[in-house]
Amino acid sequence: MTGYVLQRLLQALLVCLGISVITFVMLHVAGDPAQLLVPMEASREDVELLRRQLGLDRPLPVRYLIFLGGILTGNFGRSFFSQDPALGLVLDRLPATLELALAGLGLALVVAIPLGSLAALKRGTLWDRGTTALAVGGQAMPAFWLGLMLIIVFSVKLRLLPVSGRDSPAHLVLPAATLASFLLPVLMRLTRSQMIEILGQDYIRTARAKGVGMAALIFRHALRNAWIPIVTVVGLQFGRLLGGTIVTETVFAWPGAANLAVRAIRNLDYPVVQTVVILLAFSIVVVNLLTDLVVARLDPRVRLQ
């Protein structure tokens, strides 16, 4: 186990390094921050001076090392526009994004597992077809469109829920529902196929033959075995979930990091963009690492692979 953990840690570290390279190349080679930073009336000399101050006149590898050093010491530079430290700006917004991501994930699990299980139990019935259709339809539905619809129905027409902002738990409902739509179809189909497989296995048949109740069967036996793949998929889907926050935060003006990132991208505010990209990417790496370790702990076969 220790060997496996070390190996995975090293892997994660290499991935983080790769992420920093790609981010650096994308932002520092493709664009020239100095041009954007200088005041409009600046002369050519002013631009050159600024380039020297920012270290933009040095060779690329050196600049990359400086960039990497900045990441390691928590110095992500300052926003081109507000002049605030970029790390602080992003960290201020990260809790909102994580709150939304967890709520979306929770909602998706709470809906997907019962629906998927039921579909598996009542395989071939109208119920099964209905949920499958829901899953397929959900996958084809553009989430931004869904978000707009939810606002019109629940906020404007019914006046049940607030449209945007993050002042109360009620504010979380519509964004979480929109975000959950990213995961729901996948999790529902996964639960269904896992349950079908497990319900077909001998020990379940035996238990059933012994007269164990259906509820007990599902909760005590089947789900217990189904949740290893579910955890794996949730871990792998974490990136998709964070991607979904971009859509969701835009539609609901949710004050999170993704919203900040979209504005920074539009303004070409590179320090903020790179901070968001790197922090989110690193958090995905960490989540993937943790899921792998959890799964490895639960399922000894994985470690031997």
Partner: peptide, 23 residues
Amino acid sequence: NGAVSIMMAFPFMLLALTAIAVA
């Protein structure tokens, strides 16, 4: 494998948005 792991760790939408904003 390393390249796959790196790509999978990126928040895809953010990567695409940034790349298009830059390009």
